[in-house]
Computed example of a mutant assay.
Amino acid sequence: MGSGTLIAVFRSLITPPLSLLLLFAIAYAVRNTRPRLAKTLSLSLVSIFLLISTNAGAWLLVYPLEHLERALPDTKNTGAQAIVILSAGSLEHSPEYGGQAIPDYIGLGRIRYAAKLYRDTALPILVSGGFGSKSPAKDSLASAMASALQYEFAIPVLWQEDQARNTYENAQFSARILQQAGITRVLLVTDAMHMRRAKFAFDQTGLVAIPAPTLFFSSSDFGLLSFIPGVEGLRRSNYAMHEWLGLIQYWLFHTKSRPQP
């Protein structure tokens, strides 16, 4: 089992919903010996679960994370020499695409914004993403994104980085390709929750990464449904906690420079 898998397992254990279920199991185990503690812990866990399962509750975690890096105010006067798009996940063996892998909806959101940036700037594009946790797969994450850009958006992709297994490797391996091409300043495209950690990773390489975040979930208006627990609220909370933990990990273990609060 590789270190990347161990880190993924550890993050799953300490992020909801699994972390809450584990704590609930502890409360259940001590229900006879420590009934008051078990009751208090159980009620607290249920309350937390209900809170983070709403979009309004998730907003408490998502909003400060997404606003660590603001939306790009001007796409045309950045001084960038290229556009870098980071992969997300993929849907394997998609029958409507002849069994090919296609980007998931997070990846597609990043592609769509990158397409806008390309229309505004005509800068060359690099897509980055290896085979992820499903290796060996038929297609890398980068190749799935490149295919979508080329065949569905009619936008060329000049470089594909198809070895990275995580965000830090996205940065390291992409930098090697770009620096060989004389590129030192890039527009970095990923979703808003992921942007601060991605920028920090690219800052380690010597490239100047200009944040170009997309998919701001915290900008949605609140309505009645925002306060009703659902899968989307839990997904946003889980993703936000994953990114907060990722920032802490980078802060502790990648000390060449630290992300600023």
Results as ranks from 00 to 15, higher is better:
T75R: 12
N238E: 14
A144H: 08
A209Q: 05
L207Y: 09
A122P: 00
H93I: 03
D162Q: 11
Q160E: 15
L86R: 02
A56V: 08
S135F: 07
R70D: 14
R34Q: 14
D120A: 15
R165L: 11
R185Q: 14
V208P: 02
G130R: 05
A101Y: 01
L207V: 07
Q204C: 14
L68F: 09
I85K: 03
K116Y: 15
T75G: 00
G107L: 01
T205P: 12
E66H: 09
A212G: 11
L13Q: 01
G206R: 12
L72A: 13
G206S: 11
P136S: 06
P95A: 10
D162C: 02
F24S: 08
A8Y: 09
V62F: 00
A171G: 04
F253E: 01
Q81W: 09
L91C: 01
A148Y: 06
L117Q: 05
P64H: 05
T5Y: 08
L207H: 09
G99D: 03
W59E: 08
I83V: 02
K199Y: 02
M193T: 13
I248G: 13
F222M: 13
I26Y: 15
R70L: 14
L188W: 10
Y97E: 14
Y250R: 00
Q179Y: 00
A212M: 08
A27G: 15
P17T: 12
T40A: 11
Y151Q: 11
E161F: 06
R235Q: 14
M1C: 06
F217C: 02
I83L: 03
A88V: 00
S3F: 14
L207Q: 04
S3A: 11
V189N: 04
L60T: 14
L18H: 01
T190N: 06
L23T: 00
M195R: 09
E96Y: 08
I83D: 05
L68T: 13
A192F: 12
E161R: 06
P213N: 02
A144D: 11
S53G: 10
G129K: 03
T40R: 13
G2E: 12
A192D: 05
M145S: 02
L45N: 05
A80W: 07
N77T: 08
F217Q: 06
A212E: 07
P17H: 10
M241H: 06
G2A: 09
T205Y: 07
S42E: 04
A29F: 09
F227S: 03
F216K: 04
F200D: 13
F222I: 09
L247R: 04
L178C: 05
A80F: 10
I183N: 07
L60V: 15
G57V: 08
N238Q: 15
R235Y: 09
D74C: 13
D139I: 01
L245H: 08
P156T: 02
N238S: 12
D162S: 15
